[in-house]
Simulated assay, not measured.
Amino acid sequence: MSEAPQFPPLFEGLALTGSADPFTKAQTQAIMGCNAGLVVYNLAADQLRAAIVFAPEVPLTDAMPVLISCAIGFQNALGALAPPEVAVHLDWSGGILVNGARCGRMRVAASTKDAKDVPDWLVVGLELPLIPANVDTPGDTPDQTALYEEGCVDVRPDELLGAWVRHTLVWVNRMEEEGLKPLNTEWRGLAHNLGEEIEWSLGETQEAGTFVGTDEHFGALLRSGEDTRLLPLSRLLEGDS
């Protein structure tokens, strides 16, 4: 049975139960003026869901790489707790891959979608299935998996959540102190489908092309024929802000 997660100083947990969605709740709390560092979470038997509230002091374009810090933080956290043979990679569009199959996702929302505005708040969410949704027919979705299907039955959700927040804090601090270069170096080694053809669903829009890399703010560069276009990281923002 999961215990209360242990968070670093200045982080505070808010536990939810039942079907309550931490990502939605975190945005509500942020709008109401909660402190940065609030971690809203729901640890169910079949999935781990959580969200962290941030209070950026820079324009949205410069704040969005916090999403990358959170994604790398999760990869580092699971990498430290899972057996060494478990491989974790990150999809630019937010997907998490464990041993090559999709296993949850990162989400992001902010108080604004204007690249030049300083957001009042930014929320990054994590959704991670622990057991398959279709336990009786796993062959129906061979490209999707769940954490316990990949040799991670000994990874406790509360420990993984605490580790995610701690590793994320390390990367957020490095980003603030050293800039984006260390983050970029780490992320490139974890990026899924880099240099390959991709198809991403971003809201109601489908994007396709060769994923050739990112710009200095982690916007995705997609090549189609002779043309290369930029998808800013803010394209991943959810909501109507």
Score class of each variant (00 low, 15 high):
7 F>T: 11
45 A>C: 03
225 G>Q: 09
153 V>S: 11
46 D>I: 06
31 I>K: 00
126 L>M: 06
108 V>N: 04
116 K>I: 07
155 V>Y: 06
164 W>A: 07
238 E>W: 01
121 W>S: 00
57 E>D: 14
149 E>V: 05
190 L>V: 10
224 S>P: 01
220 A>S: 03
175 M>W: 13
233 L>C: 05
69 S>E: 13
33 G>D: 10
210 T>M: 10
214 T>Q: 05
200 W>L: 12
143 D>R: 08
167 H>I: 01
151 G>C: 08
75 Q>G: 14
107 R>Y: 07
5 P>M: 03
166 R>H: 14
154 D>T: 11
163 A>G: 03
157 P>H: 08
100 G>K: 05
86 V>N: 02
160 L>C: 10
18 G>Q: 09
122 L>D: 00
60 L>Q: 04
156 R>Q: 15
182 P>K: 13
144 Q>N: 11
34 C>M: 06
212 V>T: 12
240 D>V: 07
14 L>I: 15
49 R>Q: 13
121 W>Q: 00
239 G>V: 02
11 F>Y: 11
109 A>C: 04
205 T>D: 13
195 G>L: 07
238 E>M: 09
58 V>N: 08
177 E>Y: 10
17 T>R: 05
185 T>W: 05
123 V>W: 00
11 F>R: 00
207 E>W: 13
78 L>W: 08
77 A>Q: 05
183 L>F: 06
186 E>V: 15
44 A>E: 08
146 A>M: 00
174 R>A: 13
169 L>Q: 15
72 I>W: 01
240 D>R: 14
188 R>P: 03
231 L>F: 05
134 N>R: 14
104 G>W: 04
13 G>E: 04
181 K>V: 15
67 L>S: 12
236 L>N: 08
239 G>Q: 02
188 R>F: 10
81 L>S: 13
197 E>F: 09
48 L>G: 01
132 P>R: 09
101 A>D: 02
110 A>M: 03
78 L>Y: 06
93 S>Q: 14
77 A>M: 12
198 I>N: 05
90 L>I: 09
65 P>G: 02
31 I>G: 01
171 W>S: 09
64 M>K: 03
130 L>R: 13
106 M>N: 01
214 T>P: 01
126 L>P: 01
46 D>K: 09
103 C>H: 00
77 A>S: 14
63 A>C: 04
71 A>V: 10
171 W>Q: 14
2 S>T: 13
147 L>F: 07
170 V>E: 13
241 S>W: 14
192 H>Q: 11
77 A>Y: 06
111 S>R: 02
10 L>F: 12
160 L>H: 08
232 P>T: 03
38 L>F: 08
116 K>M: 10
60 L>C: 10
63 A>S: 07
28 T>K: 15
3 E>S: 13
68 I>S: 03
62 D>N: 07
102 R>N: 05
159 E>Y: 10
106 M>Q: 10
160 L>K: 07
224 S>T: 11
37 G>V: 10
